[in-house]
Computed example of a mutant assay.
Amino acid sequence: MDLALAPLPQEQTGKKDRGRQIYDLGHTTVFASKSDPRFSYCLYVPPTLGQGGSPNLVAVMHGTGRAFTSYRDAFAGFGRWNNCIILCPLFPVGVLGDGNRDGFKYMQEASIRYDEVLLSIVEEVGERYDLDVSRFGLFGYSGGGHFTHRFLMFHPDRLWAASIGAPGSVTLLDPSRDWWVGMRDVKERFGIEIDPAAMARVPVQMIVGAADIETWEITHREGGRHWMLGANDAGRTRPERLDSLRRSFEAHGINVRFDLIPNVPHDGNQVVEHVESFLAEVLRDRRANEQSIAEG
Rank of each mutant, 00 (worst) to 15 (best):
Phe78Gln: 01
Ile112Cys: 00
Phe258Cys: 05
Arg135Leu: 10
Glu123Val: 15
Gly77Met: 05
Trp216Ala: 15
Phe147Leu: 07
Tyr141Gly: 10
Asn56Ile: 07
Glu127Trp: 07
Tyr141Ala: 05
His62Asp: 04
Pro156Lys: 01
Glu217Leu: 11
Gln291Glu: 13
Glu273Ser: 14
Phe190Thr: 12
Asp73Val: 12
Met199Ala: 06
Glu124Val: 11
Arg18Asn: 09
Thr69Ala: 09
Leu173Trp: 10
Arg238Thr: 01
Ala231Phe: 05
Asp132Gln: 05
Val181Trp: 06
Lys15Trp: 10
Leu119Glu: 14
Lys187Asn: 14
Glu123Leu: 15
Arg20Leu: 09
Gln12Pro: 02
Glu123Pro: 00
Ala166Asn: 00
Arg225Ala: 09
Pro7Gly: 05
Val170Gly: 00
Thr148Phe: 04
Leu138Gln: 04
His274Met: 10
Asp132His: 06
Leu8Asp: 12
Leu159Phe: 07
Gly19Asp: 13
Asp195Tyr: 07
Arg177Leu: 15
Arg101His: 11
Arg158Thr: 03
Ala74Tyr: 02
Thr48Phe: 12
Gln205Phe: 07
Ala4Leu: 14
Val202Asp: 05
Ser169Phe: 06
Gly144Ile: 00
Ala74Glu: 03
Arg38Leu: 11
Phe278Cys: 01
Met61Gly: 00
Asp185Val: 06
Phe139Glu: 00
Ile112Phe: 01
Phe139Trp: 15
Leu118Cys: 04
Met61Ile: 15
Tyr71His: 03
Arg135His: 12
Gln12Ala: 12
Thr13Cys: 09
Gly94Gln: 09
Thr69Gly: 02
Pro9Gln: 14
Tyr41Glu: 04
Asn56Arg: 15
Gly99Phe: 12
